[in-house]
């Protein structure tokens, strides 16, 4: 379970303070599929960075699977990102010099998994996204949709508590985009917790709930269908 309590993020730009996030609270149950929506500048990215443990909140409490991760140091955060978070980026962010298989193995390398085991897990993850036949290609040799599938496989290998997808269809045509969304649906059906950040309503609607952000605060939480974890339902802060 992911629980955000009064998360605030303040950037100081010279003498001016910018409140990127202001008192954000909500929670995501295991197996949930949640979208984060909002116009640009609403704090989507900042929220994603904090949930992805790439950044720390200025104040508030963020607990991931019962552990407070808002006060961890750089190395501990790297460990959390490695084991509990799987990132899927709009830009795919595959390393061009590594093969498809090599890219998928990277999180396992940082987890200290040995060569043979690493290969086995990575091969399995590529099979899950239907890319068994492209393992030894370089990223430059495959299509955009295939790249995003490699990125999803890479996000899966350490069995994370949460898959964080940031505009995963932003760089894809609508047909390929819906293929990617179908894979995410399938993963959610298999039990993966997914958080999807987008500004596209039709994409956001794949989720069970949409968290609407505006000016750094949760504007409202919209329930679309009953989540797998029903009892987890939407939670509101007093004043949102």
């Amino acid at each position: 379970m992911i629980k955000l309590e009064s998360i605030t993020k303040v950037y100081s730009m010279g003498s001016v303070e910018v409140r990127a996030l202001d008192d954000v609270s909500f929670s995501i149950e295991d197996g949930d599929y949640v979208s984060i929506m909002g116009p640009s500048g609403s704090g989507k990215s900042t929220l994603m960075h904090i949930i992805g443990c790439l950044d720390r909140p200025s104040s508030g409490k963020y607990s991931l699977q019962g552990e407070d991760v808002s006060e961890l140091d750089d190395t501990e955060l790297a460990h959390v990102r490695n084991r509990r978070i799987g990132f899927v980026f709009q830009q795919f962010n595959l390393l061009p010099r590594e093969t498809v298989l090599g890219n998928v193995e990277i999180p396992l390398i940082y987890a200290g998994v040995g060569g043979k085991e690493r290969r086995r897990i990575a091969t399995e993850a590529l099979a899950r996204v239907g890319l068994s036949d492209r393992m030894h290609h370089r990223p430059a040799e495959i299509s955009g949709g295939q790249k995003q599938r490699v990125a999803i496989a890479r996000a899966l290998v350490n069995s994370p508590s949460l898959i964080l997808a940031d505009e995963p269809t932003g760089n894809l045509d609508s047909r390929t985009g819906s293929e990617i969304l179908a894979i995410l649906d399938k993963l959610n059906a298999e039990g993966c917790t997914i958080m999807l950040v987008t500004h596209d309503r039709s994409v956001a609607e794949r989720a069970g709930r949409i968290v609407h952000l505006r000016d750094g605060s949760v504007e409202r939480i919209e329930g679309l269908r009953v989540d797998r974890a029903v009892e987890g339902g939407p939670r509101f802060d007093g004043d949102s």
């Binding site: 750089d74 790297a78 460990h79 490695n82 990132f87 962010n93 390393l95 999180p107 890479r154 350490n158």
Partner: peptide, 16 residues
């Protein structure tokens, strides 16, 4: 720079 960011997001710590 971007590769470093990607590696860090995938779990590389500063020491790595």
């Amino acid at each position: 720079t971007r590769e470093i960011g990607v590696r860090k997001s995938l779990g590389a710590c500063n020491r790595d």
